[in-house]
């Protein structure tokens, strides 16, 4: 068998210089949303995109680290399952997807969307997707925070009797 071959000399395209902050935000929502949401956005913006696998999708482990005392030097807490994929579009962009769990298809979809984000022709749609998804995730977080807030203890001091 021959090694994976593809155009290695493709120059950086205009628009593929990515804002790492935005790219990280995209990856954060892709990791947390249900897989169906990734399927629907992909079907909406690029249903026929041509994909070449570079690595995976594959499932493995990441050793999760904590800090001694919460803020000291690191220690190994235990492992978590992680699935990841790297894909290349026929136009050359390389996308990475990685998330907790064993859903390899989810990781592959995340990688495709990361690659599409770099291509430039869907940046508007993907930026809107990031904003909407973050709002949706924030809403779920707010709900949990509000449920927790309702269990907050309001202390009141007992009035002592007069002598």
């Amino acid at each position: 068998m021959t090694p994976k071959e593809y155009a290695m000399d493709r120059p950086a395209q205009a628009g593929s210089v990515l804002d790492p902050v935005l790219r990280r935000r995209l990856m954060a929502v892709l990791a947390r949303l249900p897989r169906q949401r990734l399927e629907s956005i992909l079907a909406q913006i690029a249903p026929d995109v041509e994909i070449h696998p570079v690595r995976g999708p594959e499932t493995g482990l990441v050793m999760v680290r904590g800090r001694i005392g919460g803020g000291g030097s690191p220690f190994n807490l235990g492992e978590a399952t992680v699935s990841r994929a790297t894909v290349r579009l026929s136009t050359g962009e390389i996308g990475h997807g990685q998330l907790l769990g064993t859903d390899r298809q989810h990781a592959r979809l995340a990688a495709i969307l990361d690659a599409l984000h770099q291509r430039g022709d869907h940046q508007g749609a993907i930026a809107a997707f990031i904003t909407d998804s973050e709002a949706e995730l924030a809403q779920a977080e707010r709900r949990q925070a509000e449920e927790t807030a309702a269990t907050r203890v309001d202390f009141f001091t007992m009035v002592r009797g007069d002598d």
Partner: peptide, 29 residues
């Protein structure tokens, strides 16, 4: 877990930034 390859280690998690579901102290009211 022994059947899976290890991809690497995480950055140390920041428990100070936890999205809290429960939090109590027996030393500070």
């Amino acid at each position: 877990r022994t059947t899976l390859p290890r991809f690497g280690s995480s950055l140390p998690v920041e428990t100070g930034e936890m999205a809290i579901e429960r939090r109590i102290s027996a030393t500070y009211k």
